[in-house]
Amino acid sequence: MEGVIVGTVRSGEVPVAFARVMVESAPGPMPDIALLSGPDGRFAVDTPYRGRYVLVVHADEHRPARIGVDVPDPGRSTETVVELPP
């Protein structure tokens, strides 16, 4: 059973749409695809493995962010927030 990291990309209180959310490292091989945040800044990254995921988030006109998320149970949803510096 695979889980998911669900998150929001925002800058201050403003959600950032079409930010590119990428998995920099994961406990196993991951596809080299970039997920895009929605108009509400929401995104979801599937987590097929137990362990630590490092996400890198880029958006035009923002500095990038990098955040680590521990997934103790790959079958569950893990919530996070990615704050982009302006």
Partner: peptide
């Protein structure tokens, strides 16, 4: 290190390193 780590450096756990 992977390409992203080479670009950004090794972040402390859970901390953005930009």
């Amino acid at each position: 290190p992977d390409a992203a780590e080479a670009t950004f450096g090794s972040a402390a756990e859970g901390q953005p390193s930009l």
